[in-house]
């Protein structure tokens, strides 16, 4: 049996986009292997999984309980591992904060290998092959799976959800209570904005901003895009304490793949480029025409960011209101 199990991530009872991305990867893999896509979701009572059938799931196991409204590592790992033991060739999930935490726990319980943050999953010569970036994207490693089962976490914003209507038959299962550490609450961030790793547009600032207060011009630019943009930061400015680590893009921060990445006053150190080189379009604004960031950028403006950025904000506002 060459079935694939896809772990569906939910937030507040609704499936996240990354769940649909994992379904797309699972559907392609199952079609190749001649198997089915089964999905599994844990969440609060009322959890809606209808989207799973529309996006390629043949069957959906749902374990709802008030106790797993928030991510709880013990019950998640125990419930999903119990299901995954039923001979699935691959267990797929998004490499989000939840997925990165859950995937190794599943692999350890299933005594099977783990390939993290994959950007490609394929079947070559009858074997499962997974591609994953290493050294924060400075190289791509392809791995052949030699075990009977594998857990693969998938890089978000990399697989495109597909419309693939399947039965999506829902079957309720019980949450396996496994103890362990317990999540008691989720604190909202101080600035309620879209996360830099999930944003369609990232406006990132570096040392060229000269001061923490000057990030206000980037906040303004992000705001001009109307809620789909997040502010990112280079390692230098996070180390200087100007911005929170949650916003850091690069090898010791987040790896982002937005549609548009605007690098402002960022020189383009290797470790930074590693974190954003998979952006669809990169714009660089820097006063130093020789800055390495211009080599990575699709479009560049050489100039004083304190003049360029406010003008850009104004233009973005104008076209968005048009």
């Amino acid at each position: 049996m060459a079935n694939v199990l896809v772990v569906l991530e939910q937030r507040d009872g609704t499936l996240k986009r990354v769940a649909l991305e994992a379904l797309a990867a699972g559907r392609a893999l199952a079609d190749h292997l001649g198997g089915e896509v089964h999905a599994i979701a844990l969440g609060p009572p009322g959890l809606s999984v209808e989207a799973a059938g529309a996006h390629g799931a043949d069957k959906v196991f749902v374990a709802t309980d008030e106790a797993v409204r928030l991510y709880q590592s013990g019950p998640y790992a125990a419930t999903i591992a119990a299901k995954a033991k039923e001979a699935y060739t691959a267990v797929l999930l998004g490499a989000t904060a939840l997925g990165k935490d859950l995937a190794p726990r599943l692999a350890a319980r299933l005594v099977c290998p783990l390939a993290s943050d994959a950007t490609e999953v394929a079947v070559e010569g009858g074997a499962l092959v997974v591609q994953r970036p290493i050294f924060a994207g400075k190289a791509n490693l392809r791995l052949r799976v030699t075990a009977a089962q594998v857990v693969v976490s998938l890089r978000p914003n990399n697989f495109r959800p597909v419309e693939a209507a399947r039965a999506g038959a829902v079957e309720s299962i019980a949450v396996v209570d496994a103890g362990g550490a317990r999540t008691t609450s989720v604190k909202a961030p101080e600035h309620a904005t879209v996360d830099v790793a999930e944003a369609a547009i990232v406006v990132a600032g570096g040392r060229g901003l000269k001061d923490a207060e000057h990030f206000a011009i980037l906040d303004d630019l992000a705001a001009a895009f109307g809620g789909q943009a997040a502010v990112g930061a280079s390692r230098a400015v996070v180390d200087a304490g100007w911005r929170a680590h949650a916003e850091q893009v690069g090898q010791t921060g987040k790896t982002v793949s937005p549609n548009l990445y605007i690098a402002v006053g960022i020189s383009g150190a290797i470790q930074h480029l590693a974190g954003m080189r998979t952006a669809k379009v990169i714009v660089a604004i820097n006063k130093d025409k020789d800055a390495p960031i211009f080599k990575a950028a699709d479009y560049g403006i050489v100039g004083d960011l304190f003049e360029v950025v406010p003008r850009l904000t104004e233009e973005v506002r104008r076209i968005r209101s048009a």
Binding site: L70, Y71, T96, A97, L98, G180, A181, R182, T183, T184, S185, V186, K187, A188, P189, A192, V194, D195, A197, E198, H245, A246
Partner: peptide, 11 residues
């Protein structure tokens, strides 16, 4: 830290 928040975990 999780996307758009901070999880508080006891153990």
């Amino acid at each position: 830290e999780i996307e758009g928040g901070v999880e508080v975990v006891e153990f």
